[in-house]
């Protein structure tokens, strides 16, 4: 029921997904206790592959407990091919692009999970917030906050960019105090070297944020 493979990174346990959980527990106890571990060896990380088995939090804790009880073993991760429908929907929502057509006026706030595609303007005093990226097809004159849950790779793009503030994750930048003209077709992103938000031409995104491309990005975001 349990196959163990040793790799450079530690042990990988493949657990058969057709038998009952109780028998897995019993077998795991046996398999691990027969393995002889040398005292001088360093800690070994264990990765568990569950196949198409779904386990509860308690069951997961039980598995970890057994492995933790064996000296020199530490659980790195538990992987499964299946997730709950609820989690899947959440995952989908977090990685979707939400298209909204409206004008976000002074005093109004639009918040979405995932990426926001706003077709319309954000007026001064208006605010848009997204856990992913923000794309504004229109004028951005208010506040935009991308990657609100801490995603520093998020970007903000706008057809016309004259924001009062740009916020990405925990970074904030504001417009200069002098009167300035806005810019067309630009994007805001965090420059890790300068550790601040910079505004640049849209074209730089293909190099600096290549994972914005379609499907790969969604998986990464998830």
């Amino acid at each position: 029921m349990i196959t163990i493979k040793g790799t450079r990174d530690g042990l990988t346990l493949y657990i058969d997904d057709t038998c009952s959980f109780e028998s897995v527990i019993i077998e795991l106890e046996q398999v691990l206790s027969t393995k002889y571990v040398d005292k001088d060896e360093p800690m070994i990380t264990v990765t568990i592959h569950l196949g198409n088995r779904y386990i509860h939090k308690e069951q997961e804790e039980e598995l970890r407990e057994i492995i933790r009880n064996k000296k020199k073993l530490v659980v790195h991760s538990i992987e499964s091919n299946v997730i709950l429908k609820k989690e899947a929907l959440q995952w989908k929502e977090d990685s979707e692009i939400k298209a909204i057509t409206r004008i976000v006026r002074s005093g109004q706030v639009v918040e979405v999970n995932g990426d926001l595609l706003l077709i319309g303007d954000v007026n001064p005093g208006g605010k848009i917030v997204a856990s992913g990226n923000i794309f504004v097809l229109g004028s951005l004159r208010g506040i935009a906050h991308a990657g609100v849950n801490g995603n520093r790779n998020a970007v903000i793009t706008a057809s016309y960019m004259k924001p009062s503030q740009l916020r990405i994750a925990d970074y904030i930048s504001r417009s200069p105090d002098y009167e300035s003209e806005g810019v067309y077709m630009e994007c805001g992103l965090i420059d890790e070297n300068k550790s601040k938000i910079v505004i640049d031409r849209l074209q730089v995104l293909s190099q600096k944020r290549p994972d914005l491309n379609g499907f790969e990005r969604r998986i990464l975001n998830g």
Partner: peptide
Amino acid sequence: VRDADRIIGLLE
């Protein structure tokens, strides 16, 4: 203009 924008938002 700012206040008018706010009012238009409320009127919607």
